[in-house]
């Protein structure tokens, strides 16, 4: 019988610890499939963040470096500058990248570091139990915005792709979503292109992935996917922001 579906080689054969309906696992799989397809597992270094995916170094078969909260782009910079032939990706959540690590992401992009950032935006802090994130939507209830995010008190959601697109050093920027099969397929294409941009030494690449957090959103998995589509995408429009026509 032909094998039509199997675990990518770049993923370790263990069960992941993520909650039911969480899309982190899918994002991991897409990254691993891309690593397999580009045949770069032996020279890929991943940077694990702080957040729900703090220990994703247990899930990837390539070398991994666990970073402090928000510092993954700086750590990735150090790794890449020592061995420029390595393919280096940083995996970051919204609190990690868009709050505590704002300086690091902006300046890694500014320098045009030849690294790839996979930015998982689920509009909430998952690991620390549902606090307001910089990407939390207006009126969204979280444990630290119990009456809903109020711009008067909490300011507005931050659009990372649009922000980074103003920087010369960031050459490939795309926002994708995990809410259905078609978009997951698109997401893989974007992740692959982001890696290829790095391998072609063109500059900094980032893919923002709209992702679900049923546990902290208080929704079931199906409702969560619908919430991405109905609530998040209007605020965080999908598509390419930079580098669509880059030859890789």
């Amino acid at each position: 019988m032909d094998t039509v579906f199997k675990k990518p080689h770049a993923l370790v054969d263990v069960s992941m610890h993520y909650c039911p309906g969480c899309t982190h696992g899918i994002v991991h799989r897409l990254i691993a499939e891309v690593i397999d397809e580009l045949d770069i597992e032996g020279k890929t270094i991943g940077i694990s963040p702080v957040g729900c995916t703090y220990n994703n170094y247990e899930y990837f078969n390539c070398d991994m470096v666990q970073a402090a909260h928000g510092r993954a782009p700086a750590v990735a910079t150090g790794v890449k500058r020592v061995n420029p032939d390595n393919v280096v990706f940083a995996y970051q959540g919204d609190g990690d990248l868009a709050a505590i690590g704002t300086a690091e992401i902006v300046h890694a992009a500014t320098r045009g570091e030849k690294i790839t950032v996979i930015f998982v935006n689920n509009a909430i802090y998952g690991m620390t139990s549902g606090q307001m994130a910089p990407t939390t939507l207006i009126n969204q209830v979280t444990t630290t915005s119990p009456l809903g995010r109020n711009p008067e008190l909490h300011g507005y959601p931050i659009n990372v792709c649009e922000l980074l697109a103003t920087l010369e050093g960031a050459v490939y920027i795309e926002r994708v979503s995990m809410h259905d099969i078609k978009n997951i397929k698109n997401a893989k294409k974007a992740i692959k292109k982001a890696f290829q941009v790095q391998m072609a030494n063109l500059g900094f690449s980032i893919v923002e992935v709209l992702s679900s957090c049923p546990t902290n959103w208080g929704l079931n998995p199906v409702e969560s996917l619908k919430w991405i589509q109905d609530k998040m995408i209007p605020v965080y429009p999908l598509g390419n922001f930079k580098g669509k026509d880059l030859e890789v």
Binding site: I47, V65, A67, A68, R71, A74, V75, A76, T77, G78, V79, K80, R81, V82, E104
Partner: peptide
């Protein structure tokens, strides 16, 4: 943190 990465 760049030091951390480079040392790693």
């Amino acid at each position: 943190n760049m030091v951390y990465g480079a040392a790693s």
